[in-house]
Amino acid sequence: MPINLSTNTKPTWCPGCWNFQILAGVKNFLAKKIKNEEDKKNYAIVTGIGCHAKIFDYINLNGINSLHGRVLPTALGMKIGNPKLNIIGFSGDGDAYAEGMEHLVHAARYNANIKYLVHNNQVFALTVGQPTPVTETGFKDKTTPQGVKLSPINPIKLMLSAGATFVARVYADAKQIEEVLNEAFKHNGFAFIEVIQPCLIFHPDKNYKEKTYFLKDKKHDDKNFEQAMKRAQEFDYLIPTKKTKIPLGIFYREKRKAFEENIK
């Protein structure tokens, strides 16, 4: 009998929100991965604050709906407190790249065996549309009537530089999410997975999807750091032009001792 991961809580995401794709992908993956009801206890989820965090209420697993930006240290404490626990952390781009940036950089260094999905819709959606550190230059909202003047950061480059041992990007598509989690769970260490996710209301898909391609189709060597860095630079999070290509899949993976292996 398949594991029931559903809850009675009615989702409050906008109708058609791309978060439903992420939820479906995660649930499909977990339903196959978790052996039985008892085995559910070996899995936990951690969320931050923002639209992404509502996922906590739609997956019937233990864990914590934590504070804005604090997913990674919370998950770290849980993992080293109970190394047998399989933990998936969820953050938004505000959560991961603004409020919690210091934790993200250090999480890459610590390399605890945590799987981390960043729902990157390039906007603070739940607070109705302000720019985040990954919003494209020129983006306008009520707080930036003249348009955003700054350049966005490139989280893939950042994670590679910080020493992350598993760096991937997928589109908000249930199948891609399931596949990348399958790979991430084979990796004994921190897995950084960015999900390019349009926000229907405040940051719709700006022709991103048609610009994407899969790294595996281009014979990308995910053990090669220089290649990974090169691929990471192909997309700078600005409005796509004719030349823009958005690589999807696993940029990089390497083996390194996991943080929790040092615990007494």
């Binding site: 951690v46 914590i64 934590s66 504070l67 604090r70 240290p73 919370t74 998950a75 770290l76 404490g77 849980m78 993992k79 080293i80 407190g81």
Partner: peptide, 8 residues
């Protein structure tokens, strides 16, 4: 926050 994680 890590303390909270280990506590729960």
């Amino acid at each position: 926050n890590a303390g909270i994680g280990s506590s729960i």
